[in-house]
Design a protein around this nucleic acid. Structure first.
Lengths: 373, 373
DNA sequence: TCCCATTATGCAATCGTTTGCATGGCCGTT
DNA sequence: AACGGCCATGCAAACGATTGCATAATGGGA
């Protein structure tokens, strides 16, 4: 017996005889369906049915069974049920993969944005008895393989992809596995139904807002280049500006990665440039907050010296000084809708073509960070 | 057959005969161990051993098996394995339970603070093959019962409690179940080993810092009254102040609940009072940020008009203007250590009395939000 | 009164993996 | 050359719940 075999209370568990071995102290043997059945004096099948199909069993029997269940605290063993039913009642939520920071340090993945998304997901799924399994991808191939494993091992019945990509390309394996899957806040794909905000339109709205204020020179703090949403937002932003006669070279791009630090970095570049933009659109609130901070540190002021727009509408955006003008994403609703779409897929329903892309409205919330130039 | 029976591809699955029914399109039948065994020409047992105990099988056989595994993409079915091995390889992370907001709205639970905690937990657990199951308690009895269910149903092998309490009292059921369990950032209890920061000492350090600056009238923004950590922090804070001869009535308490909004509310009360404190200690960064915002909105300035200290050291704290003086909790380390402690418990190890409470050092980070009065 | 329909329950197979025990072959030792 | 021991593998019994089919019991109608 190898050293890592740490199963407890097994050696004493000879099946013969009727004296049950005392359970290992501190780790009680759980009640099982037969225990309940024995108490009531029925068969295990009846107990099973009493719980799953109340109408298939005599009300009186059912009551006795329910009493016994309460008495013993019986809960059906999930592994056994999953095995038999070929359903795990788990949903895997795959979270985006920010690359390591410069110092090789990993960063938390559940940012304020994802946090509320998770809330909606969790609420919707748990209503239907599904549990949420968290699959963080830390830009590591190993992690990514493990996540695919969860799927092939049948540990989850569905997948929610909260990201733009799986860097090591396992998304293909997932799609191949045929597991129900829904993407969130991501550009659509033929194989992946998605729920998202109308990012292009939101970006156009931002552009219009800034144009209306009279701005003519613009900055744009990007997301990571690989992120599909980055292109959608930039596209919408640029399109509206150009339609208003703004030349492409009046739009300066600053590299960002959605995170606070990259917002500051962008601001540093911004500050050093000649002929600065008078308005900057950062496509995450965190970057906008980082940007704003750097501007103030440099002794300039928002919006007097530069107007600033964020994206997402995280709680902290309201607590900036001045409060950030931003695009409020209905995060909880996005999460809930994605979960509901996944529930339908898991139920075996097919989605009509026009149901495969759900675009929700995002709302421009004008705070104090934008003004006339 | 009831309407919600949506099992697919079952009706055709008569076990007789050898023609396997074609799997339902879009939901392939997963490879199982016998398929691999058949390809290699060995028994299922050998395949199982080749994967679990490489030394118990001929290297040559093992290689052939591994090839077949790769070829077929075989992954052991988790439900079957859990059932047989009585281990699920899942850990439940129970997240704190903020009450509903005034409007009856639920709030996200994965705040920036918990987010990094989760990172540490996730990294440590996944190294050992455990997956993380997220159990949010939304102050709802039903949810809480479901969470206890996960445990009694054997769906998880261990529990991490990231909270001060389970409002509906299921913690007792959990402790009774004998499942390995570790608490995080919570006051200890005889039944629950914990990992936490030395909150009392951290609060004393804050008090000393403010005293050193010359402050003599203090404010304190509380956490929820039921939260054990609230009392520990206040205790440490007050103790040091009193030792320095500050009378108890020179310390004003403002009610808070850790969240942004409650920080603003506290500031509103603060602003209206006569003989205001010159220094305020808010026991979460979020409340400090909310407080600071309100102060600025009122036209006052931090730290000129009031010094402000937070607690946690979340990323946003560095991006306030001025950067927040705060107590930096080593969140990722806390998470990792808690996970490691849980791993030991799940391995069946007993913890010595002095190992049951791990206190980590928190570090006072002096930002720009504190100054002489 | 008899028979059929209906309903409540039990029996037993099944889900896929692990593992104690049995077996058979091989090698080394005397 | 014979025998003991070891090693690699196979066999089959679990793990606990679900469910198709069989059966027993009940009731109603003719």
């Amino acid at each position: 017996m190898s050293i890592d075999d740490n199963r407890r209370g097994r050696s004493s568990a000879g099946g013969n005889g009727e004296a049950r071995p005392i359970a290992h102290p501190g780790r009680r043997r759980a009640t099982k369906i037969e225990d309940v059945a024995a108490i009531v004096g029925v068969s295990a099948s009846t107990v099973s049915r009493a719980l799953a199909r109340p109408d298939r069993v005599l009300p009186e029997t059912r009551q006795k069974i329910l009493d016994a269940v309460r008495l013993t605290g019986y809960t059906p063993n999930v592994a056994a049920r999953s095995l038999r039913a070929a359903r795990s009642m788990n949903v895997l939520v795959v979270l985006s993969s920010p690359p390591k920071t410069a110092e090789g340090h990993l960063e938390a993945v559940v940012t304020p944005f994802f946090s509320e998304l998770l809330l909606g997901i969790d609420l919707a799924l748990s209503e239907h008895g599904y549990a949420v399994l968290l699959g963080n991808l830390y830009d590591s191939r190993q992690r990514e393989e493990r996540i695919v494993n969860l799927v092939t091992a049948g540990q989850v019945d569905g997948v929610l992809l909260l990201l733009g990509r799986m860097p090591h390309g396992s998304r293909h394996s997932l799609e191949e596995s045929g597991i129900p899957m829904v993407g969130v806040t991501t550009a659509a794909s033929p194989d992946l139904p998605v729920v998202m905000v109308d990012d292009a339109e939101a970006a156009r709205t931002v552009a219009r807002h800034l144009l209306d204020l009279g701005h003519r020179r613009f900055g744009y703090v990007t997301g990571p280049a690989w992120h599909p949403i980055e292109h959608v937002r930039f596209g919408g932003f640029l399109e509206t500006l150009q339609a208003a006669g703004i030349p492409a070279d009046a739009v300066t791009r600053y590299d960002g990665d959605f995170r606070l630090g990259s917002g500051s970095d962008a601001a540093k570049v911004f500050l050093q440039s000649a002929g600065r933009p008078t308005a900057v659109f950062a496509i995450s609130d965190e970057m906008a907050i980082g940007f704003m901070k750097e501007i103030r540190t440099a002794g300039l002021s928002v919006p007097a010296d530069v107007s600033l727009v964020g994206f997402d509408g995280i709680p902290f955006a309201d607590y900036c000084e001045p409060p950030l003008t931003t695009v409020r994403q209905p995060r909880e609703v996005i999460g809930r809708q994605a979960a509901e779409m996944l529930l339908r897929l898991m139920r075996g329903e097919r989605l009509a073509a026009d149901e495969r892309v759900v675009k929700l409205d995002a709302e421009l919330r004008v705070g104090g960070s934008t003004a006339r130039p």
